[in-house]
């Protein structure tokens, strides 16, 4: 038996709006430890990992591990019926293949879960989520790839289009900067990755969920773009960098 009740449907709506373009169908794996969702995009170049912890719910009951295959667009459409501060309840009996109240059809999705090594990163940048979103959007009008370079001074975004290039440098802020403007950098050594902008732009749909975004990079490894939600936990997006031929 699974019974989840969330006082603020708005949060779940924002979560779904931020992932529904990247992934169409996915399994919500619910256990006593929380609800998680891990899925790759159709081109298998990007991946997202979502964790919703029990203490983010008003009521969380999960007697045994249950995996609910859902079409995220349908779930987002269904949740549109709820206003942001409505309470949303998700029930699922073990045997049934639907979740009640909206009778949404569940699907059997064979998803191959991937093991994400908890490796260290050469550079970790924390910056305002809205700034990162605006940079990705602006650069997306110029080129389709961005070279993100991190040094101890700051983080640089460079893109080259067929008619012009753009180079945005965000300097690390001094420790006294206010939280919402702070740009902090933890770095073992300078690192630079070339990434497809359309995926990064898709990741920034999660901007409404968090004030800050954490960007973790290691040479030759997928970049991690993480939005921490105050009580629910996190959404992490992974994107494989492009490699020169």
């Amino acid at each position: 038996m699974l019974e989840l009740r969330l006082t603020r449907a708005g949060l779940l709506k924002k979560v779904l709006e931020s992932i529904r373009d990247l992934v169409t169908d996915a399994n919500f794996d619910c256990a006593a430890t929380g609800c998680s969702l891990q899925a790759m995009d159709s081109s298998r170049v990007a991946m997202l990992s979502l964790l919703l912890r029990p203490d983010g719910f008003e009521h969380y009951r999960c007697d045994r591990n249950i995996s609910m295959g859902m079409n995220l667009a349908n779930m987002a459409r269904m949740l549109r019926c709820a206003s942001d501060d409505d309470t949303v309840t998700i029930n699922a009996d073990d045997a049934q293949d639907k979740i009640s109240d909206y009778e949404m059809k569940l699907m059997h999705i064979t998803s191959e879960n991937l093991e994400i090594p908890e490796a260290g990163y050469e550079a970790i940048v924390k910056m305002p989520a809205s700034l990162f979103a605006r940079i990705c959007k602006d650069l997306g009008t110029i080129g389709d790839t961005v070279m993100i370079s991190v040094t101890k001074e700051g983080i640089q975004f460079f893109t080259r289009g067929d008619i012009r290039t753009a180079n945005i440098f965000c300097r690390k802020t001094t420790p006294v900067a206010k939280e919402k403007e702070a740009i902090s950098i933890e770095m073992e050594k300078p690192v630079s990755l070339t990434l497809a902008l359309r995926y990064l732009i898709s990741f920034t749909k999660a901007t409404p969920l968090a004030k800050q975004v954490t960007i973790s990079m290691s040479y030759g490894r997928p970049i991690v773009v993480e939005y921490k939600m105050e009580i629910m936990d996190h959404i992490r997006f992974y994107l494989v960098p492009k490699v020169e031929e």
């Binding site: 790759m40 081109s43 298998r44 170049v45 990007a46 991946m47 191959e112 879960n113 991937l114 093991e115 994400i116 090594p117 790839t145 070339t194 497809a196 490894r221 997928p222 992974y238 994107l239 494989v240 492009k242 490699v243 020169e244 031929e245």
Partner: peptide
């Protein structure tokens, strides 16, 4: 030109 590898070549299947 640049190549775009897949994520499955970085993260093993569980």
């Amino acid at each position: 030109g640049s190549k775009q590898p897949m994520i499955t070549s970085f993260f093993g299947k569980v």
